[in-house]
Design a protein around this nucleic acid. Structure first.
Lengths: 163, 163
DNA sequence: ATTTTAGATATTGATTTGATAGTTATAGGC
DNA sequence: GCCTATAACTATCAAATCAATATCTAAAAT
């Protein structure tokens, strides 16, 4: 018979958790990532980018964003290497904003945002669209796994360690 | 010999993509999700919650957030059912903010944010901490897969359809 | 009785936002 | 050659939001 102890959401005892918490770096990669993409418009622009929308005017129309706001966010995304500004139509200043590898790497985040919104915020009407995973043909049901063991990741199963 | 066509980032021909884009709902679950969690402070509070930080004062200290801002965000998170305000220490107005199932469901997003920040924004010093997947004991390398086929999800392999 | 702690609210100046209007530069039609 | 349309912005300014500081409340500890 094991002794019953209070456990936290991460599956540790309260004392273990408190001890670890005190030493945790307050500035981590979540904060670093949010400095770059921690803005509603940024996420919406990325969503558009993943749907294939690449031009300023299309973005403005789809998002209903003010031109100054959109220009500012696009500038920031280009500065941070998430989008690149590519001239299309030679001899005119017409540009496309294309996702870089760094930008494409954000796709799973957008997929999870969509999936979470579908599940918890789509109301009784349900979501207006579904994603389809073309290699297998099924509606995409995204799942985050640990690459080492292949199992799904839940908060209770994860600890942290300093580096 | 197949005819060469221009393909977009989603692997379709330009015409197919343009056709689909025109019909796309502009309001989707990404927008719905962002209405709730599309804020830098919200993400940071969630990060703290997943690290086991549950009290107002600890959040304030760890995040360096102004009390009015923190109170506002906590109120919003409770309103949207992501956190619940639970009284600890009977007879005093001392509260813990605990993640609901809806809130716990956001954990994969935080993990991906951290992983993306580690990869692209941690500089030459590298990230200050790593996550460990306790069931297998390895440092967590998160990967988003399609639950139907088990393969990794990349932008090029995903289309959408209306519902 | 006084101080401390936790969890806030109130006030106020600074910053950011976003709606609207205007600018630039080129292409194509008349 | 001139007019209009289109794409991609910039400028302005009122309104909303943010954040620093001070203050408040209620109970516990001293």
């Amino acid at each position: 018979m094991t002794t019953k102890k209070k456990v936290t959401s991460t599956g540790q005892t309260a004392d273990e958790a408190a001890d670890q918490l005190a030493k945790r770096p307050t500035r981590d990669s979540v904060a670093a990532a949010l400095d770059v993409i921690g803005d509603r418009w940024i996420f919406l622009i990325l969503r558009e980018a993943f749907f294939g929308v690449r031009r300023y005017d299309d973005l403005r129309k789809n998002l209903g964003a003010s031109p100054n706001i959109l220009a500012d966010r696009l500038r920031r995304l280009v500065e941070h290497g998430i989008l690149t500004k590519v001239q299309y139509s030679d001899h005119r200043n017409r540009f496309e904003y294309r996702l870089t590898d760094k930008g494409l790497d954000l796709y799973p985040m957008i997929v999870l945002l969509l999936a979470w919104g579908d599940k918890w915020e789509s109301g009784k009407k349900g979501p207006p669209l579904a994603l389809v995973h073309t290699p297998c043909g099924h509606v995409l049901s995204p799942k985050l796994i640990c690459e080492a063991c292949g199992e799904g990741v839940v908060a209770q199963d994860v600890r942290w360690k300093p580096l």
